[in-house]
Design a protein around this nucleic acid. Structure first.
Lengths: 190, 190
DNA sequence: AATGTAGGCCAACGAGCGTTGACATGCCAG
DNA sequence: CTGGCATGTCAACGCTCGTTGGCCTACATT
């Protein structure tokens, strides 16, 4: 049993509204400037409700940033296209909602957020690289290289909003980044 | 005359101490959590002195992040090694002092900081790409691609401190990233 | 119908922030 | 010696924040 019998509570809707508002605010403002008062206002409830359900601001952040990158199984597809698939997946994931932007914004200014990012990327990208990396002991290093390029594009495109990075189409981004990621994943150590 | 006769003031040392402390704090904490009071304490003066010399917090940040990437003239060296030279230069620049880390931290959470980063990278990297990019109208896009990889590595290595990214040596980082940057700069459009 | 409890609001707290203006001290020109 | 300006300190302001505890309401169980 993964769920130990969950009776649907009347407050579930409220909790979800708080989480939605929190994700938006954290993504837009980062940890410090995203205030509990503003989040509560967005969710149309009192700030004290946030405390009741999530304990404190950090608890709210932890709950709001439970992240699953939802990386696809790459073992099944031709190894040559792993880079393109991975880049495309991340673009979709990043544009889907504000969770990843929030994680990036908070990870930069908050140590707990940074720790969260380290864990998410090490585990989830690491799992992928372990399957395709030609050098067994180097999977985590390859994962870091892939993360550097993907997070760098996310940073310039979705956070800093460099004009040229924003104006590139999805296909153009994939065309440029896929060979880079492919090389980081599958090339021999230089 | 670039300097209209500057008599050395006794307060120059204090101003410099404030700027040093500000850079450290902005780099370590980001814009919101770097307080004027803490900066003043580091510089061993009263917070009101910061206001006197820099007007307000944003003025202090602007003064503390007057950035010159000091990119070398790349025209003189063989085109094949432009990528490696550029990556190496940025690693030096990033490890030299906290200015770039501060700029990155602040740029992520503060719109004025983001604007500053856009300007710095567009002008200074753009100037380099304009000289080596094979497609005339694409220099700014190439600059954005280069920035995405370089900022991504800076993010994972110096801000988020991913284990594997931190443990790589300078030469290893260059060996992996140089071909990427080289391709972004000089390859034909894919 | 009575009652316990979960859901929600309101007012207030203590702390820290950026910022201000009045006041003390030292230096140099006249 | 004296005045004025640069340098620096001190105490306070108004504000916003995270957080707390008391109180009200409505539903579900008995």
């Amino acid at each position: 049993m993964t769920k130990p019998a969950a009776p649907p509570r009347r407050s579930d809707a409220t909790k979800a509204a708080i989480l939605d508002a929190a994700r938006d605010r954290f993504a837009a403002d980062g940890y410090e400037r995203a205030t509990i008062r503003a989040i509560a206002r967005d969710a149309n409830i009192d700030p004290s409700m946030v405390m009741r359900y999530y304990g404190n601001k950090e608890g709210l952040f932890v709950a709001a940033s439970a992240i699953d990158l939802r990386l696809p199984e790459l073992g099944a597809l031709p190894g040559k296209h792993v880079g393109a698939v991975l880049v495309g997946h991340f673009l979709d994931r990043w544009e889907g909602d504000g969770v990843l932007t929030a994680m990036l914004r908070v990870g930069v200014t908050n140590e707990a957020g940074a720790e969260r990012m380290r864990a998410v990327f090490a585990e989830q990208i690491g799992a992928v690289t372990a399957g395709v990396c030609p050098v067994p002991g180097e999977a985590s290093r390859r994962a870091a290289l892939v993360a550097s390029q993907i997070l760098g594009m996310a940073l310039t495109r979705y956070v800093l909003r460099f004009g040229p990075a924003v104006e590139m189409s999805r296909d153009e981004v994939i065309a440029w980044l896929a060979p880079t990621v492919q090389r980081y994943l599958t090339a021999e150590t230089p």
